[in-house]
């Protein structure tokens, strides 16, 4: 038991690792600030494409979304980071992570927005159009606000997944929180820095996870 505590909850080591892990947290936060808005924007585009009346638009977009939902994000990341250099395209870890997660997140957010748009009755759009609003105005002022409200729990839940996903960036040596903590672990031969990082993830994400559970109860079908 003492050995377990010594190995996982060594406070001296946690305090020593604190500045390193905190620096990693900064990178994690920056990464989230970049990929969450990009994923939301890409997802919205994908959703609009996947409900487009024209088959020539709809089917390729649905194919794109399903393809990137079938490929594990880590596979995509490793392909972009260590496969593309063979073709002469060498990206920085940050750029590789942003591109990989943009593709992955757009697919997931896209599915959520699509469900939201489909949940808004056709009559809403028709009524809006008949009051003289244009297509774009109808979408922005009538359909999307209702769509987003209907799928808000899923959007929050997916955003939690995106934040968790940033930990994969450690695999390509981007110095985010997990990478920083793992560095500290390998220097100290002790897992406490990893436990510290886990604690920070918990503090940030637990409220969101609770929120998602609450939504779930209110909206149960």
């Amino acid at each position: 038991m003492d050995r377990l505590i010594e190995q996982f909850f060594n406070f001296e080591i946690m305090i020593a690792a604190w500045p390193t892990v905190l620096e990693g947290l900064g990178v994690t936060a920056l990464l989230c600030l970049v990929i969450v808005p990009m994923g939301l924007a890409g997802g919205l585009l994908a959703a609009l494409g996947s409900v487009a009346p024209a088959r020539g638009v709809r089917w390729p977009v649905i194919g794109f979304v399903d393809f990137f939902r079938a490929i594990p994000p880590l596979v995509l990341l490793i392909f972009i980071y260590s496969g593309l250099p063979f073709a002469g395209l060498q990206l920085s870890p940050f750029a590789a992570v942003v591109i990989a997660f943009f593709l992955n997140n757009s697919a997931y957010y896209g599915e959520i927005f699509r469900a939201g748009i489909l949940s808004v009755g056709q009559g809403q759009a028709e009524a809006a159009r008949s009051t003289g609003l244009g297509r774009a105005q109808t979408l922005i002022h009538v359909v999307l606000p209702q769509a987003v409200r209907n799928v808000l729990p899923d959007l929050v839940s997916n955003t939690v997944e995106v934040v968790k996903l940033t930990s994969l960036a450690s695999v390509v040596s981007l110095g985010e929180m997990l990478h920083a903590a793992n560095m500290a672990r390998s220097v100290t031969y002790n897992a406490s820095p990893l436990v510290l990082a886990a604690g920070i993830y918990l503090v940030i994400l637990w409220p969101l996870v609770r929120l998602v559970s609450r939504f779930g109860r209110g909206l149960a079908a």
């Binding site: 190995q7 968790k164 450690s170 002790n190 990893l194 436990v195 993830y201 918990l202 994400l205 996870v209």
Partner: peptide
């Protein structure tokens, strides 16, 4: 809640790299 909030890779690393040192 804990297992939904923690990134799986973090848990994998804690278990895989931490437990051997604890025997």
């Amino acid at each position: 809640d804990v297992f939904r909030a923690l990134p799986p890779l973090v848990v994998i690393m804690i278990v895989f790299f931490g437990l051997p040192n604890a025997g």
